[in-house]
Amino acid sequence: MSTLLEVSGVSVSFDGFRAINNLSFQITKTEMRAIIGPNGAGKTTFMDIVTGKTKPDEGYILWGDKNISLLGMSEARIAREGIGRKFQKPTVFEDQTVQENLLMSLKNPRGPFRVLFYKPRPSDLERVEALAVEIGLSGELQRKSGELSHGQKQWLEIGMLLAQEPRLLLVDEPAAGMTPAEREHTTSILVEAAKTRAVVVVEHDMEFVRRLGCKVTVLHEGSVLAEGSLDHVTANQDVIDVYLGR
């Protein structure tokens, strides 16, 4: 199994506070990984670093078959390399329809002039249709996404991620604010996606993580505390002390 993303010895400080401390992390090409950890452990900051939003003070990040470095690339460039991201708080373009949101995300040329003369091909529209079915929004394509419920927005954002056809999906708390039924659907979307690509899911809800049935990385104070199967890490005394036993 070859490595898709390798984060090595990364640290970042905000005004002297070490949010990420000598963090190392690897993921292979088709793998699901859950990241858990207490509030402020640095989970979101880790995603910020991988997606280029935050520049690390030290360490390196290597990507893909050619092991290119992601450091110094712009957010947009990293996204085009194939890293898609879902934010903790659902962020869809509320003023635009579900279809517009998805069309904008579809993997197509991103340059201003190409986009200016872009016309959706039938295959693009079919893809949008298929995605909408997958995320349970097929009846809502023409609705403004601002009118959707919270759970539907979360799905739309996941759909936008899938539309990008990324090789790595970073998903921050996808089930936050969802009903049990919605959570189940979300799980199945993510498990399906992980069959063909790498998926990293940050989640607090242990039940949700259990259903994902994947390797778990526990973050604490900016570095990895434990890694392994869910049963393995939940048996770890350190993990119980800092996270589970609260």
């Binding site: 997606t51 996204a79 898609g84 934010f87 373009f93 904008m104």
Partner: peptide
């Protein structure tokens, strides 16, 4: 068209547009 979509996206959430590539 899509250019307009991107523009309105920039207006409403610039960072999100960046992460779309």
């Amino acid at each position: 068209g899509k250019f307009g979509s991107v523009l309105r996206g920039i207006r409403d959430n610039e960072a999100r547009v960046r992460f779309l590539g």
